[in-house]
Design a binder for these strands. Structure first.
Lengths: 108, 108
DNA sequence: TGCTCATACCTAGTAATACTAGGTATGACA
DNA sequence: TGTCATACCTAGTATTACTAGGTATGAGCA
């Protein structure tokens, strides 16, 4: 995947991942890698600042929990996060339809 | 359209626009606005630096031409530009399929 | 025990790029 | 003459994914 494609879309992907179930940072990376068949293989330096932004924005909340006998910082969606996710879905549909249309091979 | 969605996709959209026919900066903005049904309504400050980047990268070439009796800087694709556009199309398909899949409403 | 490794979290700084806010110039038209 | 849309441009800004570093833990092994 090229450099800048993800910009503006990562937070929606994280919210969608957390909608399925609460998760901690490292496991979100694994979820994204698996569910994208390897397209999104993100370094850790990407996920933690993004999670902090989401928490600052009031879209997710984190709690310290024991998972498999170890302390993890688990993030879960709050109401505003669900709302934001719905907006992102609509926005993505509009955006991706427009790009797909323009990139379609033009009639020669 | 939100702030950062376009990042990493604009150059492909410009190349695709120029594939149809050579065009000058201002007219590319109009093409994108029309062909996206208003989704891409970009300010001028977006297009000229992008065109200069594309020319620096050797993907397009510009010539000064008279269009409707006026001097215009007309950009057209060169060979490397066609190649880059094809790569961008493949990359977009992969990227958009992955995002669409992850954003799909999860089974409740 | 000591060593390595995967896991897990974090941050300061960097790079890339769309955008803002300003500028200039032209021709059409009232 | 004045205004407007068109047309091109650039310096600086904001955003955000990433790089490159750090720390800590538990499992497995020699």
């Amino acid at each position: 995947m090229s450099n800048q494609q993800l910009k503006g879309h990562l937070e929606a992907l994280i919210l969608a991942t957390l909608e399925i179930r609460p998760a901690y940072g490292y496991s979100i990376l694994e979820s994204l890698r698996t569910s994208s068949a390897g397209v999104f293989d993100l370094p850790e330096g990407t996920i933690y600042p993004a999670l902090h932004r989401l928490e600052d924005a009031g879209l997710v909340k984190s709690t310290h929990e024991m998972v498999d006998g170890r302390q993890r910082r688990v993030y879960h969606l709050v109401a505003a996060g669900y709302g934001s996710l719905e907006k992102s879905r609509k926005s993505w549909q509009e955006f991706s339809a427009a790009v797909t249309n323009i990139l379609a091979v033009n009639p020669a």
